[in-house]
């Protein structure tokens, strides 16, 4: 019981997602939005169809 309680803290957790301030898509934190290319209030890349 004690062992399993302890091991439970080591389980896999899904990455926490934030909302893009520009387009509202779910994005990983601290990363330029892959949907619209915005990061910190400016366009940093163009999203290509690939």
């Amino acid at each position: 019981m004690r062992l399993r309680t302890r091991k439970a803290a080591n389980r896999w957790h899904a990455p926490k997602l934030a909302k893009c301030s520009q387009c509202g898509a779910s994005v990983l934190g601290h990363i330029a939005c892959p949907a619209c290319g915005y990061y910190k209030g400016r366009q940093v890349l163009t999203v290509d169809a690939g």
Binding site: A35, C36, G37, Q43, L45, T46, V47, D48, A49, G50
Partner: peptide, 24 residues
């Protein structure tokens, strides 16, 4: 150009997106 175009405010940004996002 591909970077500058979307930075020039709204209408070009939309145009650029329409061009490049259709697959998504």
């Amino acid at each position: 150009e591909t970077i500058v175009a979307p930075e020039t405010k709204k209408p070009p940004a939309k145009a650029a997106k329409v061009k490049e996002v259709p697959a998504a």
